[in-house]
Write a protein that binds this DNA or RNA. Structure first.
Lengths: 202, 202
DNA sequence: TGGTTTACTAAACACCGTTCAGTAAGTTTG
DNA sequence: CAAACTTACTGAACGGTGTTTAGTAAACCA
């Protein structure tokens, strides 16, 4: 039956149209301005139409989040190029923080906003995130003999926690408390991370 | 003039009534349900009245944030009791993470939500946060001779970043990616932190 | 061609933060 | 004491949000 094939194709294209518009708005105007109504207006459909393709806003955001995880994973693969395991770890940490600070709204969606997580079902494996997380675990694992951690999973947790903490405090304006200029903050972060890498090495 | 004194007193009492109600709602129902309208209903005034005492919602949240910083600072002082500088640092890190995970909505207000930061003026010194931050810097500074950091400010940055990262990932549900039970996650965090403390010590 | 399914939307509902005109009480002044 | 003024408060509105539902018009099928 060719017609139902085409219908299925059209349905998928509509979904792509919606998340494409939403992704653009996320990057350009931030998540606060990415409303169902604004997305609908941009693609020239009624807001109600979006609900024929997504159950609610959380499900829509969940799908954009998936795209964002793909994107950051691709960025990791592009930036982590060395053959030396320790150097790779350094590159990954640097890439993570650079990506987060350069793309605060997508970072928000991936790691801070509550909305997309409400759509993660109990049986859902949250694959797109898991792939990116696995990249970290693999990178740590490859370097484990040169790290002062007894367990690579613990090392991964510490590195992710630290990276996320630095990014989140920065993009949510909490670095203000240091009473430094933004340049000094950036310098402090870089030097602190460098020293941290030094410390965790055998 | 006694009348204007009384008026001033009444004005302050009204502000306390408002933030008191807001603080209660924050703790009990979370920040998403803490709306101007809900606060007004709780104190049995019209929503418009709140705007006679606070410029906008950001300013109101900023004041509640200040209370939260006082509270977490008091918690630090209660939990950090050892005489050994390194032990004090350990106690502080533990207290921070415990407080954050036990009080996710107040933690949100202090370190994640954008709203209260919009009320921090350029000349504003954000004192209540600074006092708590200084507690960290002082604690690190006292232990600096036993730490493998060349600079206590860098050490403070790493510790805060790590602590915030762990809390934020936990309360915003991102630990899901580990595909562990919540108990296993808690165990992992504890052991990772313990090992981290070991590593940064001389 | 007639009946049914599909795709879409206008309008409404229940929220939200915020503003403003109007009112009633409290205070000061002649 | 009464009139003038000031203060404290609110009802109602404005423009925004996510979401639901009844109704319509086109596409499809028999």
């Amino acid at each position: 039956m060719g017609i139902s094939d085409r219908k299925e194709r059209e349905k998928q294209e509509m979904r792509k149209l919606i998340i494409g518009a939403a992704m653009d708005m996320f990057i350009k105007d931030g998540y606060e301005k990415t409303s169902i109504r604004n997305i609908a207006e941009k693609i020239e459909y009624s807001p109600a139409t979006i609900y024929l393709y997504y159950k609610d806003k959380d499900e829509l955001f969940y799908e954009i989040q998936g795209e964002a995880f793909d994107q950051i994973h691709a960025y990791f693969q592009a930036m982590v190029v060395s053959n030396d395991p320790v150097e790779r770890l350094r590159e990954l940490l640097r890439a993570y923080i650079e990506y987060g600070i350069a793309n605060p709204d997508l970072y928000d969606l991936m790691f801070i906003l509550r909305s997309p997580m409400k759509a993660v079902q109990e049986e859902d494996s949250w694959d797109n995130c898991h792939v990116a997380f696995q990249f970290l675990l693999d990178t740590v694992d490859a370097a484990k003999d040169q790290l002062r951690f007894s367990n690579p999973v613990q090392a991964g947790m510490i590195l992710w926690g630290l990276g996320h903490g630095i990014i989140a405090l920065t993009i949510r304006d909490r670095m203000k408390v240091t009473r430094m200029t933004e340049e000094d903050q950036a310098v402090l972060i870089q030097s602190a991370l460098q020293e941290f890498m030094q410390i965790i090495l055998k």
